[in-house]
Write a protein that binds this DNA or RNA. Sequence first.
DNA 1: GGCTAGCACTCACCGTTTGAGAGTGCTAAA
DNA 2: TTTAGCACTCTCAAACGGTGAGTGCTAGCC
Lengths: 359, 359
Amino acid sequence: MTTDLTDRRQLILKLAIQEFIESSQPVASELLVRKYKLNVSPATVRNELAVLEELGYLTHLHTSAGRVPTDAGYRYFVENLMDRTPLSATEQRTIRHQFYQVRSELDQWIQLAGAVLARTAQNASVVTPPRAQQARLKHLELISIYDTTALMVLVLHDGTIRQQTLTLDMALSQEDLSRCASRINERCADAPVERVEEFLKQERAQMPPGGDALACQVLDLVVKAMHQFNEHINSDIHSDGLIEILSQPEFSQVERVRRMVEILQSRRALGTLIPRVLSSSGVQVVIGGEHSYDEMREYSVVLSRYGGGEIVGVLGVIGPTRMAYPRAISAVRYISAVMSDLLAELYGIEGASRWEAES
Amino acid sequence: MTTDLTDRRQLILKLAIQEFIESSQPVASELLVRKYKLNVSPATVRNELAVLEELGYLTHLHTSAGRVPTDAGYRYFVENLMDRTPLSATEQRTIRHQFYQVRSELDQWIQLAGAVLARTAQNASVVTPPRAQQARLKHLELISIYDTTALMVLVLHDGTIRQQTLTLDMALSQEDLSRCASRINERCADAPVERVEEFLKQERAQMPPGGDALACQVLDLVVKAMHQFNEHINSDIHSDGLIEILSQPEFSQVERVRRMVEILQSRRALGTLIPRVLSSSGVQVVIGGEHSYDEMREYSVVLSRYGGGEIVGVLGVIGPTRMAYPRAISAVRYISAVMSDLLAELYGIEGASRWEAES
DNA sequence: GGCTAGCACTCACCGTTTGAGAGTGCTAAA
DNA sequence: TTTAGCACTCTCAAACGGTGAGTGCTAGCC
């Protein structure tokens, strides 16, 4: 679907969609003429609108109601018509400043990204923490809590932390635990799960039968945790901005709100989008009926990967198809750039700040 | 306000409130007679209802509408009239089983507690993680990430984990970092923030001027983190169950939903309740206008402390004043008992399972 | 051929009316 | 003290009609 429309039709389609996004009211021919000083009569605009409807970019709820964009209309708008203005310099500065302030607290990035994204794009937001595809063990720590209980803290090379408590077969001192931990650390530095498993096998094969019982117990947990990490790429989707979308007119019936809440917390639909976004670069837009899940028919998402090299995450915006796409896209693009920069700084990956130039 | 009502008035008040909680419709005199086979005529019940209204336990939206409980009515109901039946044995077993399955993953407790509480009580839920009042350093770990960046993992004695990245003045090897960490660990084992501060002061006073630069940098962060921990007892309130309350008729207007979402995420009103609950035992119920914040006038909360000894948390239910109090209270009581048991098991505190007997 | 004025036609929306139904409060009698 | 009876109040839903917004079509104009 290329630019097969006359200039005037493009203009009218663009104005109609912009107008509808802004007002959420079906847009009428006369309004367009009056508001945008078109040098033609309403009747002419009506004819053009009829053509655009014919082509599938607009619809009608009933005769004598204004035009409303279809999913195809939004798609055409996003691809060909939309103004691609970045966030204002002031906004960029404010956002970057906010991230700068929490830059040493990794887990606050996520929260901040969600909040800023939601507020900037006036929609709900989703963010996944930055992570590697495959876990590699960075550091293991065993901390004695009480007699036979201990805390295991697992740090993966992408900064992910997993904590788990374990019940020991017998009371062990902190020294025993530390000795075990450092043995594993030495042996499994930077190891992917396969190598940890191998070590576990060796350990089990040793004398006394079953080898070092504690090491086996711990390694077993480590292996499980790493497998879980590898298999559940989408388990950790944070969302925010419910309050933002509640003020949108499409959520004036609670039933709609309920469906949105379900989408945000079920992760079904969102989870399946993530892999796709991870394996592509740039901002991805999925509009209404383009989703593979029916419950998403009324919603659009704007997603982008962030990070670089091995360590990546996804962030984006979700809202009704009547979404301020230009703004949402700019926000997603800019915030993913900021997050990429932060990550690059941390891991010494060469700057993703090529984004910066673009905005 | 003691039991100053005749038996019949108590019965009628109890039935009226139960009926309203169940149906959310104003309750009429005739309905009570018919449904509960009272051996009096509707007119008699009307007279009694009029008295109860006089006493402030019930109201009227307008003539010719049924009766609706007031906050005082609910209060009287909760104190004197309510059936205190615990959760069914099956339900108890199911819940305990679910917790048992995630018992080694501390951070999943919170999530599970929130979900189970919300589902069981059919309302929104709030849960704070178990924590000590005062931080004591359990273990510090420094992990080299890249040239001049490192990850600091702080474990407090209550199992709380804080992670933070730090930028080093110069590139240091993992060995350097580990040496520094273990020096601090040795010196500050089980130390409250004051002792860490003291150590930092000593360190700074040493030669070379400023002492061990890395140690100072790290200790500074540790002190900050511990102070923050001590000062923000309420910062970490998880909530769940929005979906549950969306099906309640009081949330049929989105405006109500918005206010609830704001309450859940602002933490203002909830945060101020927490200290009060922490310093008292048993289940606390705050009904509508009894709240000190106006925005809570239409809502009730049922809260309980859980845990024991030094390490405690709060969990509870929040919903419209028309809440199924008996069920909410049973759920809060039981789940706090389960969480207390789990914590006791972990930290070897003598069983809080006295709760168990009660249910 | 494209544009436009004019006009009939179609709906949604709003305020009003009306009737029915639910439930109370009061009164008078058992 | 209880109750039957009844008038009265108020909500709710349906029906109605008028209004206004906006279209689609047609015929004439440039």
